[in-house]
């Protein structure tokens, strides 16, 4: 079995030790994430409770009684898109179209007479 090293001690002892480490280690990893699972499952409920209390204090009992206070990712994406479209894409225009007359004082430097070809008389 021992194809690489001559370890100098019996393999079954090490192997048994390894199996114990593996079982205890795996259980510990699992327990760490199970604890996180419980904490974050109940944390959201705790936060919802706080939101409901706040809504009741503000007199919004009908909202506080809603069964599911959370909105889905799809709904929040739709709301975000709507806000974006409202603020970013709709220009506010005056709807008044005018032609502004621009007056310039005469100057020989910009006179058309000198810039147009005149036919000989």
């Amino acid at each position: 079995m021992n194809i690489i090293y001559n370890l100098g001690f019996s393999l079954p002892a090490v192997f048994n030790q390894g199996v114990v480490i593996a079982i205890v280690g795996y259980c510990t990893v699992f327990s760490a994430l199970v604890v996180l699972y419980f904490v974050f499952t109940y944390l959201s409920k705790l936060l919802n409770l706080e939101i409901r209390n706040r809504l009741r204090r503000e007199g919004k009992d009908e909202y506080a009684a809603v069964k599911d206070l959370q909105i889905s990712g799809d709904e929040s994406a739709a709301i975000s898109m709507a806000i974006y479209l409202f603020h970013e894409l709709h220009d506010v225009e005056s709807n008044i179209i005018t032609i502004k007359k621009i007056e310039r004082a005469y100057s020989p430097w910009s006179s058309k007479i000198y810039s147009l070809r005149r036919y000989p008389n």
Binding site: M1, N2, I4, Y5, L7, L11, F15, G18, A22
Partner: peptide, 9 residues
């Protein structure tokens, strides 16, 4: 880990 022990590491 167990496999590596088994083959001699």
């Amino acid at each position: 880990f167990i496999g590596a022990l088994f083959i001699g590491f």
